[in-house]
Amino acid sequence: MTIWEMLAVFVAGISAGTINAIVGSGTLITFPVLLATGLPPVTATVSNALGLIPGSISGAIGYREELAGQGRRVRKLAIGALIGGLTGATLLLALPSTAFETIVPILVALALALVILQPRISKAVQRRREHTGTPARPDGGPLLFVGLMLASVYGGYFTAAQGIIYLSLMGMLLDDTMQRLNAVKNVLAAVVNSIAALFFLFVADFDWTAVALIAAGSALGGQIGAKIGRRLSSTVLRILIVAVGTVAIVQLLLR
């Protein structure tokens, strides 16, 4: 890897860490850069997953105030994320690299639709709860647990736009602000990246130079993203999610 390629990977890591903390989809920045340096797709995917761990943790730390009072919720959902992430990492090595290419844009598009409709869906769910007298479940119940676990399978496989899928599911099934849900999203992403990376350390090839550069860049980007993201209103954050998700769909379709 040349000095210019190393610089490009480092800058991509900063960008990915920043956008992951705010929305997600940072892999759509780092992955093409790694491929451009000559790394094979699976090696690039594994190196990317390892390198983004510090960024995910950094983003979660940056949102620590929004995580206050969500310990029980996070612990429960993290179990599903851990199971899903490990399953996805296993599938990455067992399935052909094109296995998810068809379904991923569809998943992201559905997630974006849920993000756009989330205010209306939440109001409809709230009215139904008031009518039936059923209280909201602070952890989202089995439906959210299973949904996030399945999303984490995809996250362990590739990670691009997994944060958008997380936010769409939580926004639909949890009665909370977008900022607090974004904080939970960062923790779940950190769990998935970490468990997938631990698995890859023992069974897959990766490039230590790429890992180190993305790790350093994403850790810095995570702090930048948290500072920016925490200042955004729920409406602006939702608009940003839709914008980034749309770009993600276009890029995935053009691959």
Rank of each mutant, 00 (worst) to 15 (best):
I249Q: 07
A189K: 07
G80D: 08
V211Q: 08
N20Y: 12
F100N: 00
V115E: 04
G26C: 07
L198M: 13
R75H: 06
V23Y: 04
D205N: 11
T209C: 02
P135A: 11
F31I: 11
A212V: 13
P40N: 11
T246R: 09
V108L: 13
A16C: 07
A60F: 09
I29V: 15
K123R: 12
L39M: 13
F158W: 06
L28C: 02
L107Q: 02
R129I: 08
G88T: 09
T177E: 11
A124Q: 13
N182C: 10
L86P: 02
A111W: 12
E101Q: 12
E101D: 11
H131I: 05
V46T: 11
L198P: 02
L150F: 15
A219N: 01
M1F: 14
G147P: 01
S97C: 01
R180C: 01
V125C: 01
I164Y: 02
A89G: 15
G140N: 08
K227H: 13
F145T: 00
Y154A: 01
V146K: 03
T177H: 05
A8H: 03
G51V: 10
R128D: 04
T87R: 04
K76S: 07
I14Y: 03
N20T: 04
T27G: 12
G229E: 09
T102S: 13
A12G: 10
S97K: 14
A124N: 11
V125N: 09
L91T: 08
D175G: 01
V33E: 02
A204R: 12
V108D: 03
V192S: 05
L150D: 00
L174S: 02
Y154I: 12
L144F: 06
F200K: 09
L91P: 00
M6I: 04
V146W: 09
G141W: 11
L110W: 05
S218Q: 12
L114D: 01
M1I: 14
E130S: 11
E65A: 14
I79K: 05
T132V: 03
A161C: 10
L201A: 10
Y154W: 10
A196T: 12
I116P: 03
V247M: 15
A36I: 07
I249W: 14
K76A: 06
L67D: 00
G62V: 05
W208K: 04
R129F: 07
L52D: 00
L39K: 10
A243W: 10
L198F: 12
L110Y: 07
A196W: 08
G24T: 14
F145A: 06
A16Q: 05
W208H: 05
Q126C: 00
T246H: 04
Y166A: 01
P54S: 03
I79W: 13
G17T: 08
A216Q: 05
G80Q: 09
S194P: 00
V74F: 08
I29Y: 07
M6C: 12
L232C: 06
S152C: 13
D207F: 09
L167G: 00
E130F: 02
G69Y: 08
I224A: 04
L67W: 07
I19E: 02
S25D: 14
I249L: 13
T159C: 04
G156R: 14
G71L: 15
H131T: 11
R137F: 05
G51Q: 13
V187L: 08
G55I: 07
F206I: 06
R64A: 01
L91I: 07
G26W: 12
S194Y: 02
M149N: 01
R231Y: 03
T177C: 06
A189M: 15
L174A: 02
L39T: 04
L201W: 12
V33G: 03
I165L: 15
